[in-house]
């Protein structure tokens, strides 16, 4: 409780760029040994390669002891449910995200790494952050990611007989296929109001 006195906040003036103070994401990226970071939407995010995944966490742990969560995103152009990403194809991969924060000033960062879709293996973080345990089990359940070195790699939500990984984009939502969700026509204009332009007009029957 006492030692992580948010050193991320204090050494900010010594950072290299003198004209504009570097963003939080840049500082965390430097600490994690990575140069890819973004600060969009006030969400600091640092990308690390898969090989440096555990090391990056270990480097950040003294500053950010609180393991918020770990999850993944299946970036895929073929989606069974929902909408694909707009504006062209994406690079197909699984992006694993973990969020770390401190418990004093609200400093936080999201670390992310990419896994190729045909090789979903990642070293486990449980040795660094105990709290990663259940989150990794969940990600293993939902995405089929194998966390090497996890102490208790049993399913957390799904039954042992369950086949498939529900949060992959290729996994169909069966209920949705049996009975389409009325969401497709959900925007009905009010009787008095004039039909709004765009999709809602098409949707209204």
């Amino acid at each position: 409780m006492s030692e992580p006195e948010a050193p991320g906040a204090a050494p900010a003036p010594e950072a290299p760029a003198p004209e504009a103070p570097p963003s939080a994401a840049a500082r965390w990226a430097a600490l994690a040994g990575s140069s890819e970071f973004s600060d969009a939407f006030r969400t600091a995010k640092v990308r690390v390669p898969r090989e440096r995944w555990v090391e990056a966490h270990r480097a950040l742990k003294p500053h950010l002891p609180f393991f918020g969560w770990l999850s993944a995103v299946d970036w895929s152009n073929e989606v069974a449910v929902g909408d694909p990403v707009e504006g062209g194809p994406v690079e197909e991969r699984y992006e694993v995200l973990s969020r770390l924060s401190d418990v004093t000033a609200g400093e936080a960062v999201i670390l992310s790494t990419d896994l190729p879709p045909d090789d979903l293996r990642l070293p486990s973080l449980t040795a660094v952050y105990t709290a990663a345990d259940w989150h990794e089990r969940e990600a293993a359940d939902m995405f089929g990611i194998v966390f090497a070195g996890h102490p208790n790699p049993v399913r957390i939500y799904l039954t042992d007989e369950f086949v498939g990984h529900p949060l992959r984009k290729s996994y169909p939502l069966l209920a949705r296929e049996v009975k389409p969700w009325p969401g497709a026509v959900e925007v009905t204009p009010l009787p008095a109001a004039e039909p709004a332009p765009g999709e809602s007009g098409e949707g209204s029957g």
Binding site: A40, F41, V73, D74, P84, L97
Partner: peptide, 30 residues
Amino acid sequence: PRGECYVRAENPKGEMGYHIVSGGGRRPYR
């Protein structure tokens, strides 16, 4: 619009947050 962000709030039970990844459409990507 496309982008992602995480917002958390102090819920009665603790930190509750949503990491929304938007693909740019009417539905979130994740």
